[in-house]
Write a protein that binds this DNA or RNA. Structure first.
Lengths: 116, 116
DNA sequence: TAAATTTGCTTGCACTTTGCAAGTAAATAA
DNA sequence: TTATTTACTTGCAAAGTGCAAGCAAATTTA
């Protein structure tokens, strides 16, 4: 298990071991916004590098936050949040609201109405 | 201004530009827990390297989330959250609660009662 | 008050992660 | 059938991380 390299039993530290980088939560944001395909994530305004995107999607799947689904009649995969991934709405919402309120010039273009 | 290298106007992206790494939010956690001195942060169970701690404290001060104060009659500095830094309680709380609920074996040792 | 210890860092270096650019095979569209 | 798009992979330079050591000033102990 990923238990072995835990820095501590602190819930903040453990959550940061999953989400504590510059990209993971942005991919999760896009998943909440309804994006499903690799190219859709890549087209987001932050322009994530494709190697990093591939890596993050794989990690999200590994950690049970997203799943890779190949729809019937198609060959290419969709990505979607799992229940566990959807439970991050509180975290994403708190981050989004903080940014909107405390960082000048931010706008909630991708945000669902429920965050405002 | 730090405006120049903003990845987008997304509040999530901009917040991650401030907090999106493995250590910053842990230092903020310790500040919320009442720690003030360099050595106190260094003694936290995650054992942050001192060069990284120095870097993060400087960044927090630069971004207006913490301040460095030298108390009267002492030479060495304390660090404390600014109002802006304290406004991160919602973010830290959401992260902590998510970890407690969704990551097995996490414990809220440093958490103020208000998070539970 | 002198010596020992602690504090608050900085420095150096190896290792890992990030980011850019290019490449590619399979899928889809024209 | 050909062109374009998709979903990646690869290679490499640059930046970030982590360990260990070093150090001067401050503080504690003897």
């Amino acid at each position: 298990m990923a238990d072995i390299d835990r820095r501590s039993c602190c819930p903040v530290a453990c959550t940061l071991d999953l989400l504590g980088d510059r990209w993971t939560l942005l991919v999760i944001r896009d998943l909440f916004a309804g994006k499903r395909r690799f190219s859709e994530f890549a087209r987001s305004p932050e322009s994530i590098a494709t190697n990093i995107l591939a890596d993050r999607l794989e990690l999200l799947v590994t950690h049970g936050l997203a799943e890779r689904v190949v729809p019937e009649g198609r060959k290419r995969a969709d990505y979607a949040l799992t229940d566990r991934g959807r439970s991050l709405e509180s975290v994403l919402g708190a981050v989004a609201r903080w940014g909107l309120k405390h960082i000048e010039g931010t706008e909630a273009r991708l945000a669902p109405a429920s965050w405002r």
